[in-house]
Amino acid sequence: MPPKGPEPAPPGRTRRADASRNAALLLAAARELIAGSGPDVALDEVARRAGVGNATLYRHFPTRADLLVAVYADEVVELCRQGAGLLTDPSPADALFSWLDAFVVHVATKRPLALTATEGPTGRRSALFDQWHTSIRATASDLLERAQDAGAVRPELTVADMLALVGGAALTGTDVAHARRLTALLRGGMETGTGI
């Protein structure tokens, strides 16, 4: 009996790989277009930019809200991933303020997307918004606690204080550069001057 060759791929495996690739292409195209034009971007343009048909877009993201949620979810995951990566930085203070800089840019540039992706029919934010906020808050808390343990940041500073201050800078800054400058100025009020 001749040696047995490799087992054929189960039916649908290639399709799943193609589906994953198409979803990634759609998300990348949507992210790029939203960054340039805002969340009201035409879905036909997203499909065209991704190089797929409209039917493929609607198969992955049946509504505009589904697409916006997926794009914003990726943004939150990336922000939290940056924070997790900074937990090994030799300077806990620099790690915290590096992440706060990324956070202020996130809020200043992604807020319209976040609000559009999470507004319910009643005008109230969806549970997704709360989940994303919880993830961001946990990341901020880990970085803050590490900086406080090193004596680098004022011990009475809470994560709610810190995010309110930096979020305020993001919302009141005249542009992203101004929001980042305001956040850098806030560092002086948060640090102890005695830590690492």
Rank of each mutant, 00 (worst) to 15 (best):
A70N: 09
V71D: 02
A73S: 15
V76S: 10
V77D: 12
E78L: 11
L79D: 05
L79Y: 02
C80D: 01
Q82F: 14
G85K: 14
G85C: 12
L87E: 15
S91L: 09
S91D: 15
P92N: 06
A93G: 13
L96K: 04
L96V: 09
F97R: 01
F97Q: 03
F97T: 03
W99K: 07
V104G: 01
V105F: 09
V105D: 05
V105Y: 00
V105W: 06
H106E: 01
H106A: 01
V107S: 04
V107E: 10
V107P: 06
A108E: 07
R111E: 14
P112K: 11
L113I: 09
L113W: 08
A114K: 00
A114W: 03
L115C: 03
T116M: 12
A117T: 07
P121W: 03
G123W: 11
R124S: 07
R124E: 10
R125C: 00
R125P: 02
S126R: 08
A127M: 06
A127K: 06
L128W: 03
F129D: 04
F129T: 04
F129K: 03
F129Y: 07
D130G: 01
W132I: 02
T134F: 10
S135R: 14
I136T: 15
I136L: 12
I136Q: 09
A140F: 06
D142M: 13
D142E: 14
D142G: 13
D142Y: 08
